[in-house]
Design a protein around this nucleic acid. Structure first.
Lengths: 240, 240
DNA sequence: CGTTCTATTGACGGAGCTCAAGGTCTGTGG
DNA sequence: CCACAGACCTTGAGCTCCGTCAATAGAACG
C-alpha cells in the first residue's frame, strides 16, 4: 500500500525556512527530526488522501503542487485551495479524525508524513513549535476568510486578478519570478476555486491579455502590468 | 477601557459540555479555571474586537450572538460567520498577532476572556485540552470549506436552506427548538454571509413561505417542512 | 496519427443585482 | 396615547454579468 519510504530529517531540509521548523534553533531542529516518520511520493493525478479517510498525519509538501477539494451530496466539486512546497496538508482531518476533503497532486510530488500524535507530543515539549502549529492553522482560517470575501463579493475580473497575485506572491517567496508563472491546474480547476465556470476563466484571461495586462499561452502566464492587476483586485478599475 | 470584569470558573459553567472544557475530568477542570482571566460584557452593536487590533486572547461566548466580518480595500463587507454560546472567537488573530476580522455582538453578550498564552501553557500541560484546541481550529477550517462550497456552487435557495438548517442544528444542540427560531441578524447580514443581496434573501424567504416550507414573520421563522429544506440544500429540488 | 483532454470563442438566456417605492416595526418624545 | 423618525423588510421592473450550449482548435499522450 505505502509507496517506498525514505528516512529524512528537517534539520537539513532546504525548506526549513518556509515549513514546519520555522523559528527553531539548530539544537531544537535535531529533536524535530522525529517529527517526520517518512516521505511519500504522490504521482500527478493521484490522491494523497480522500474525504472520509482516517486521519493520522499532517503532510508537509517537499516538492510538487496540490489541490484540495470538497464535494456536495449531489457531486458538485469545490476546489478549496492550491498548495505548494512548504505548505501543510491535512488540517481538515483533526476535528473528526477523518479527512474532510480530497488532496490531489497536480504534478508529481513528495510529502513529509508527520503523524499527528508526534506533532502534538513535540508541541508540548517545544513552545516554539506549538506556536507555529497554531499559526499554520490560524493562517488557513484567515486565508479562507479572504476566499469567502472573494466568492461573496467580487466579480470575475477581480477574482482572477486576486488569484494571479496570490500565486505570484507565494511563488516569489519560493524564489520564482514574480512576472512569470506556469499554471499547474486547468481552467476548470481555477474556475472551481474562484466560483466561476471554465469559460468565464478563459474569457477573463483573454480580456486581460487584450488589455495588455498579461500574456497567456495555455498555462504559461506572463504578468506585464502587475499594478493593473492590483487595481482590478482592489475594485478600482476594470479592463473592459 | 475594559468594562467591569468578574472572576469566573469553567468548572461550574453550564456550557462546559459545549465549550473549552469538553472531555476534561473534574480534577483537570479545577486546573482549567485559570484559563479564563475574566469576563467581558459586549452590548448589542458593539465590537468585541476589530481587524488590526493586537491579538492577546481567545473569547468563549457565554451568552449572546456575534457576527464576524472582513472588509475589502474598497469597503465591501463579507460576513464570515455567526457565532453563539459555547463557540470560540479570535482564532484569526493568532497568525499575525493581530485580528484579521471584526467581531460584533448582534445582541447583548458576555464572553470569557482567555489569554492565549494561558491557552498554550495549559495545552502543554493537558493533552486533552491541547487536542481540543486543535479540534476547534480544525472545525473552523472545515466549516469554512463548507461555506466555500456554498458560495462557489450553490444557488440562492440552496444557500438559504443550508443557512437555516445550520442554524437550527446548532440551536437544537443548545436545547432550543428545531422548528422555530429568531434570527438575530438582518437580511443584509444574512445576504452578506451567503453572497447574496438583501433583496434576494427576502425574495427567497417569501418563496419558501409561499411553498409552505417555512413561515416567516420578520425575524421569527417557523420551519414547517425541514425535509424540504434538506432536499433543496442537497440540490434535489426547488420550490419554484 | 488518432484519441482524449484542454482551451478558446460565439450566441443566447436566466438568476440574481440594481433601482425604486411602499410597508412594517420599534423606540422616543410630546 | 399618539406622532414621528429611523431602521428594516417586501415587492416590482428592468438590466447585466455570468452560465449554458455548441462548435472549433490546439496540446498531450499512447
Amino acid at each position: 500500500m505505502t509507496p517506498a519510504t525514505i528516512k529524512v530529517a528537517c534539520s537539513n531540509c532546504n525548506l526549513r525556512e518556509l515549513c514546519m521548523p520555522v523559528g527553531m534553533d539548530a539544537d531544537d531542529l535535531q529533536r524535530l527530526d522525529v517529527l517526520v516518520a517518512n516521505r511519500r511520493k504522490v504521482l500527478r493525478g493521484d490522491r494523497l488522501f480522500h474525504a472520509g479517510d482516517t486521519f493520522t498525519s499532517l503532510y508537509a509538501i517537499r516538492t510538487g503542487f496540490f489541490k484540495t477539494s470538497v464535494a456536495s451530496e449531489d457531486g458538485r466539486e469545490q476546489v478549496t485551495g492550491f498548495q505548494m512546497a512548504g505548505e501543510i496538508l491535512g488540517l481538515d482531518g483533526i476535528v473528526h479524525d477523518r479527512h474532510d476533503c480530497d488532496a490531489i497532486a497536480l504534478e508529481d510530488a513528495e510529502v513529509c508524513v508527520m503523524p499527528f500524535v508526534q506533532v502534538e507530543s513535540l508541541s508540548r515539549e517545544f513552545p516554539v513549535l506549538q506556536r507555529h502549529v497554531h499559526k499554520i492553522m490560524s493562517r488557513e482560517i484567515v486565508r479562507e476568510n479572504g476566499v469567502m470575501l472573494l466568492l461573496g463579493n467580487m466579480r470575475a475580473e477581480e477574482r482572477l486578478a486576486a488569484f494571479l497575485l496570490n500565486l505570484t506572491q507565494r511563488l516569489s517567496v519560493r524564489g520564482f519570478s514574480r512576472s512569470q508563472l506556469v499554471l499547474r491546474m486547468t481552467r476548470e480547476e481555477i474556475g472551481s476555486y474562484l466560483g466561476l465556470k471554465l469559460e468565464t476563466v478563459s474569457r477573463t484571461f483573454s480580456r486581460f491579455s487584450e488589455a495588455g495586462i498579461i500574456e497567456v499561452k495555455q498555462r504559461q502566464v506572463k504578468i506585464l502590468q502587475p499594478d493593473m492587476l492590483n487595481q482590478i483586485f482592489n475594485g478600482a478599475a476594470s479592463c473592459g
